[in-house]
């Protein structure tokens, strides 16, 4: 009987990695350092930068979009991608606004709009998992279709919703103490999903699926169901974002959110999500969004032309991904 098989040192002790080194190697640490550095530089460059008003404006600028970033990050981790986020957000906004103008209670109208956005996700999930088409193509089609429906509903003009009740507008415009409710909603969503993603069995399956779909299937995970759900969740969060935008602006704009998908994907990727699936964190993705917003705000304060901003944002994206690529190589 050879029950014990100690031939060499069985080296499975506790991980011997220095926690400080681990922290230094994390993507989030690098982003925080860059963001803080920008804060320091900008506080010298512009006296206005470090004021409460400016910081609040910066956070407001990405807070609602940040909810979409959460959905996109989870979808990217599962191996998917969604180009339709901007259109679906606008669709939720327009449908809620249109229903309200037809006399539907704004809360009910909002719930229906979020339901419709969720249905858009389920529709895409169906084509991806049952028909077997690629996320890119399916969401490209839905991006165009949803935008078309927005224009159809409104005749291409924004819907003014001046009669929205104040308690509804409070979602988008109200404050609790000094802090806007929008920011509180955003922070709660981010903390909740960050925890869920790091710690729950449900979302661990998302990582397994994105890391190696076949190995996940061979571990008994219903990978198609996982992809269907992450696709649906992303669109549902777009619906939530659309309703908040409507409450904030008091109007519904059919052309809202053009180009949003690129911003959102850029934030997630700068924050460490991989287009190949299997990696990414909510916290990192939000830091990516923060970085993009801080850059925009700084450039505006420094009177840099708006046209330069896109060029600089694109460059940041390329730099982040390149650094990641080389770090990934050196680790192997």
């Amino acid at each position: 009987m050879q029950k014990t098989m100690e031939m060499a040192t069985p080296a499975t002790a506790a991980p011997a990695v220095n926690p400080v080194m681990k922290l230094l190697r994390m993507r989030e640490t690098g982003l925080i350092v860059i963001i803080i550095a920008m804060f320091v530089v900008m506080s010298f460059a512009s006296p206005y930068f470090l004021t409460w008003v400016n910081i609040r404006a910066m956070v407001m600028a990405f807070a609602v979009e940040g909810i979409v970033v959460v959905g996109m990050t989870i979808l990217l981790i599962s191996g998917g991608i969604d180009l339709s986020v901007g259109s679906v957000t606008a669709l939720a906004m327009v449908v809620a606004g249109w229903l309200f103008l037809q006399g539907v209670d704004p809360w009910v109208a909002s719930a229906m709009a979020i339901g419709l956005a969720t249905a858009c996700g389920a529709f895409m999930g169906f084509f991806v998992t049952r028909v077997g088409l690629h996320h890119f193509i399916v969401s490209l089609a839905v991006m165009v279709i949803a935008r078309g429906i927005c224009l159809l509903f409104t005749g291409g003009r924004p819907l003014g919703l001046y009669s929205l009740p104040p308690e509804f507008k409070f979602i988008g415009q109200g404050t609790i103490g000094p802090i806007p409710l929008v920011i509180l909603i955003f922070v709660v969503v981010v903390i909740a999903f960050d925890f869920l993603l790091r710690r729950t069995v449900m979302f661990r399956k998302v990582f397994y699926t994105g890391s190696n779909e076949k190995a996940a299937a061979y571990s008994g995970i219903r990978t198609k169901r996982v992809v269907f759900l992450t696709t649906t969740l992303c669109s549902a969060l777009c619906g939530v974002a659309g309703v908040i935008y409507m409450a904030r602006f008091g109007s519904a704009q059919p052309t809202f959110g053009l180009g949003m998908e690129l911003n959102v994907i850029a934030a997630a990727v700068i924050g460490g999500a991989s287009l190949k699936g299997g990696s990414g964190t909510i916290f990192g993705a939000i830091l990516g969004a923060v970085l993009l917003s801080v850059v925009s705000s700084s450039l505006a304060l420094l009177d840099v032309s708006v046209y330069w901003q896109d060029i600089i944002r694109g460059t940041i994206l390329l730099t982040a991904v390149t650094i990641d690529h080389y770090l990934g190589k050196s680790r192997k």
């Binding site: 890391s211 076949k214 190995a215 299937a217 061979y218």
Partner: peptide
């Protein structure tokens, strides 16, 4: 191909 999750 389908036995392990290499990057996990």
């Amino acid at each position: 191909g389908d036995g392990v999750f290499l990057d996990m």
